[in-house]
């Protein structure tokens, strides 16, 4: 006969289970996704659907290979969240097979080889993203221009997207017509050419590109998660603060800090990617350090590095430091 030692059911306490947490995260992503689709590209829906379906398939496959219960492993929904984050991070025009490669790396190398949910030291979505970025730098930096979207049919874009022939010169010309660099990449190009950036122009460009609105929408979703106590304030606050502080003090570009905070993937990252509890530090004190590290590294890579957006690398680098943070934290006493 079963002898429960702890009678958890005798004490009625409403708690969320893992599945609920993941559903809440997905729900909180919705405003950001819609704003992104509106301002940047509706193709993001296609990417999200593709990534989510593939992720579930790959996850089920991996669980089957490992001889584990497929249903129990997939139903917690964590892989869907990771897939959506990856789909949001890649450019909308990324050829579908490249996205598939990214999803495969995310599920297999980012998560399942370590033993599935809870065991992976690195954020799976960011592993997939970073692998894509270093493997396909050309397509991973292709962003569609918002003002051209109206002139092209969705079918046209999908056609381009579904094409397997990446290096087809006609297609590339075509893409040049329909893509334009993100403000961050624009800044980067200007910097490479040694040109200074006019502040007003930069501001205008930042706002008109829609990235600011997208970031605000993700901030809104993040606040929802904070309100629902799905995430704690420590990581997002320290990421944003340290990034803002760095850009306030050290930025050589003529972009005010309040705009660079709302550019790129910062809000999405601060509230949805860096807060992945599996790969973050354990204690609240450690999480502050973790977040601050991400903010600072993200700034360093954006400002001085070879990539326009460094959030993925910043997250991976700090994931790498998590055991060290925990180790030091443990020896400094357990109370935060």
């Amino acid at each position: 006969m079963l002898k429960p030692i702890l009678d958890t059911q005798a004490v009625s306490l409403k708690t969320l289970n893992t599945q609920h947490i993941m559903l809440w995260v997905l729900a909180a992503l919705l405003p950001g996704v819609f704003v992104y689709a509106w301002f940047i590209s509706p193709l993001v829906f296609f990417n999200i659907a593709l990534a989510a379906v593939l992720a579930v398939v790959f996850e089920a496959l991996a669980l089957y290979w490992r001889g584990q219960a497929i249903h129990g492993g997939v139903q917690d929904g964590s892989i869907v969240v990771a897939a959506v984050l990856l789909a949001l991070a890649v450019p909308p025009l990324l050829p579908f097979w490249q996205l598939a490669v990214g999803v495969f790396i995310m599920v297999m190398l980012g998560k399942q080889v370590y033993g599935g949910l809870g065991n992976n030291p690195f954020n799976p979505a960011m592993v997939g993203y970073a692998a894509l970025l270093v493997s396909f730098p050309q397509t991973m930096t292709l962003w569609s221009a918002p003002d051209l979207l109206n002139q092209l049919t969705l079918g046209h874009l999908l056609n381009a997207k579904l094409s397997l022939d990446l290096l087809n010169p006609n297609l590339l010309i075509d893409w040049d017509g329909i893509t334009r660099a993100t403000p961050l990449e624009h800044l980067r190009t200007l910097k490479m050419q040694g040109l200074s950036v006019d502040q007003n122009l930069a501001q205008q460009q930042f706002i008109s590109s829609g990235w600011v609105w997208t970031n605000l929408a993700f901030l809104l979703g993040g606040l929802l998660l904070l309100y629902r106590r799905i995430i704690q304030w420590h990581i997002p606050a320290s990421v944003i603060l340290s990034f803002a502080l760095c850009s306030l003090l050290f930025s050589a570009q003529n972009v005010p800090w309040y705009l660079s905070v709302f550019s790129g993937a910062l809000m999405l990252g601060a509230f949805f990617i860096a807060t992945d509890p599996v790969t973050a530090a354990s204690s609240n004190r450690g999480r502050l350090v973790f977040g601050a590290g991400i903010g600072a590294l993200c700034f360093i890579i954006r400002e001085f590095g070879g990539y326009p957006e460094g959030f993925a690398f910043a997250v991976l680098l700090m994931n790498l430091c998590v055991p060290l943070i925990d180790h030091i934290d443990m020896h400094w006493g357990t109370s935060a």
């Binding site: 289970n17 947490i21 129990g72 949910l117 509890p277 973050a280 204690s283």
Partner: peptide, 11 residues
Amino acid sequence: QPCIRCGQCAD
């Protein structure tokens, strides 16, 4: 289910 280290226990 597997632990996702959400930290609610620590709270």
